[in-house]
Design a binder for these strands. Structure first.
Lengths: 193, 193
DNA sequence: AAATTCCCTTGACATATATCAACGCTCCAT
DNA sequence: ATGGAGCGTTGATATATGTCAAGGGAATTT
């Protein structure tokens, strides 16, 4: 159950066996069925989740009622609404399962306690958030400087399995374009070949 | 010289006087003249900078030669290229001074040593990066879901002094629009009043 | 198995924003 | 002080992408 999580830890910090055993105790395993919510807009985000299995997405709904996907989370990724998690303010995000999922949840109190008992985890999360910031900044620059087609190509290049794993209209939402536009982009691409 | 930095520390962690004195030793004061670079594309980012005084910006230049401003940094803010700083890969960013600046630089080695000697600083930077990620995510969603006018209004709302501090074409670059479009948006807004 | 819903596609048209060009103003630098 | 560069503005036009509408096929529900 915790193998994948430990693999991820090992990439960034070195934990002893005892620390790993201790770390386990802070996480709450949870299964989620496809289409179930982990978080709904208006709720306070109590957990950040590590994905052992399955796929989730986080998204907001704008004033016009349009969904904007912030993130997908596949096996080995983390997902949550950091703002709500930190501040205890109601979330503006929704998070739901695109497939049946197995998660490891970390509550705020558990996180604090874990940081106290295992200071290396503070480091792990700093590095994790740093990488996340780097990726988000890249995506931001892309969204300001690239065409929809370029962004789509970059997305597929960086995650080639994504078209198989995620419905097309969700990729469109992630890219900030309409499903129609993505459909046409793919048409063009297939003609060029 | 360090007052502002300590104010910022105090907002997120509690340091003793000794820790503050110790912390000082890790920072390198540096003055930068208007238009001088702190970092140029292709160089490896050795420092992350805290702004005591002045204004800077970080930006990339895309294949078409267009500048895209990633961030402004005013007094009390931090700026750097985290990716290059962490990985020691050549940076794709430029950072330069929009006014004469006084900075406090933190090198990677200094950072590591500081984390070792003052573990609370690890926490400080985690929280700092978290907030940065939250802000960047918001901006990303805005860039995918809002019109140029909405984004401009939000920017000014969140930082009302920015039009006085930053030339208009740089705000346009930050917003991901052309100077012409921003000029027209402002015209419209002034007519509505 | 039938019915329904959802998803993807395609077409016609609308709109936001970009591009290109010209002009006046301000602020440096000589 | 003078000349030049850069900045903001405005107009005409181009382009990427959105909107609306319709149809077909796959998947899910009854």
């Amino acid at each position: 159950m915790f193998e994948l999580l430990f693999t991820k830890f090992d990439e960034k910090v070195q934990l002893t066996e005892e620390e790993k055993e201790l770390a386990k105790t802070f996480f709450l395993p949870k299964k989620l069925r496809k289409r179930q919510y982990l978080l709904q807009e208006g709720d306070i985000s109590k957990y950040v989740a590590f994905v052992e299995k399955g796929t989730l997405r986080s998204y907001t709904v704008d004033e016009r009622g349009v969904e904007h996907i912030i993130q997908f989370a596949f096996e080995g990724w983390w997902i949550g609404d950091m703002y709500s998690f930190i501040t205890n303010e109601p979330s503006t995000y929704n998070i739901d399962a695109l497939e049946d999922c197995e998660l490891l949840l970390l509550s705020q109190q558990a996180e604090e306690q874990m940081f106290e008992k295992i200071p290396k985890m503070e480091r792990f999360f700093r590095i994790l958030v740093q990488n996340s910031l780097i990726a988000t900044q890249r995506r931001l620059v892309g969204s300001l400087s690239q065409t929809a087609e370029e962004r789509y190509n970059d997305l597929v290049a960086s995650c080639p399995t994504i078209p198989q794993r995620v419905p097309q209209h969700m990729m469109a939402s992630f890219l900030g374009i309409t499903p129609e536009t993505l459909s046409r982009i793919r048409k063009q691409a297939s003609l060029k070949k």
